[in-house]
Write a protein that binds this DNA or RNA. Sequence first.
DNA 1: CTCAGTGCAAAGGATTTGCATGCCG
DNA 2: CGGCATGCAAATCCTTTGCACTGAG
Lengths: 145, 145
Amino acid sequence: MTQDDLDAEVAELLSEFDQRYTAGRKRLVSTLSAGAGPLTITEILAADNTQAQSSVYRNLTILESVGAVTRIVTSDEFARYELAERFTEHHHHLICNSCGSVEDFALDASVEKTLDDALHHAAERSGFRVQEHRLDLLGLCRNCS
Amino acid sequence: MTQDDLDAEVAELLSEFDQRYTAGRKRLVSTLSAGAGPLTITEILAADNTQAQSSVYRNLTILESVGAVTRIVTSDEFARYELAERFTEHHHHLICNSCGSVEDFALDASVEKTLDDALHHAAERSGFRVQEHRLDLLGLCRNCS
DNA sequence: CTCAGTGCAAAGGATTTGCATGCCG
DNA sequence: CGGCATGCAAATCCTTTGCACTGAG
């Protein structure tokens, strides 16, 4: 997906909720889109210091509420944000226990399928309605190991 | 594993780090062991109000540092704690997007094996050294759906 | 003109820490 | 006795919110 396509789709999502696609929000989407994984507020501010921290929080909250970005928490005390899955490939995270960095990775489609089937089956037994799954690996990244 | 066995092993872990297995810590282990899933500080305090909140935080931190309990964060703003995996069966979490409750569930050993192999393989490609994996399901629990 | 979006500073809330006291070893 | 553990309260730090101002439509 090109940046223009992305912008158009995010704008569409926002408009459905009577929200504008302002310059600040556009920059956030662009920054997240450029990252190799979910970014912390600090990282976002470092990459784009054109807006106040509170605006970043507010805009990310709005982008999340319309389904354009996803907020994730790993283990450390910083929340991270990434583009919603509709704009990316389904993927998982490599979380470094040492430096806290988070990187994306994907699984074979066949494994993903097996997993998904097993998950739905297991959840059914508990009367749980699955909306999505979250699979992360914890360990040491290339730099820290 | 009986409560006595559990106590003995936790005591052993603590002693390796020159930490005592005090009454407060013992109660925490017992409380966590009784829960159907990871508990929040609030839930822990509700189940055992014999120690100050700060002591609960401090003791949980110590228990985590010696590997007796695990701290997990889901999506909401409350951290949760559960007994470390060495004291439980390998399991995953059903996280309710509505009420925030967290329940345990397990996967077939064969699926778990397939998954684990695929994960190690995928991580290798990124130069990542896997220590553990974390797999949670997000959706609606029996009560909320 | 109007009203959402923004920046700044102050408030909130989970978690941590300083300090004096109590208790185990 | 000595030092770790604890309670209480104050401090931290990420995140949220109040308020006045700006800018797009």
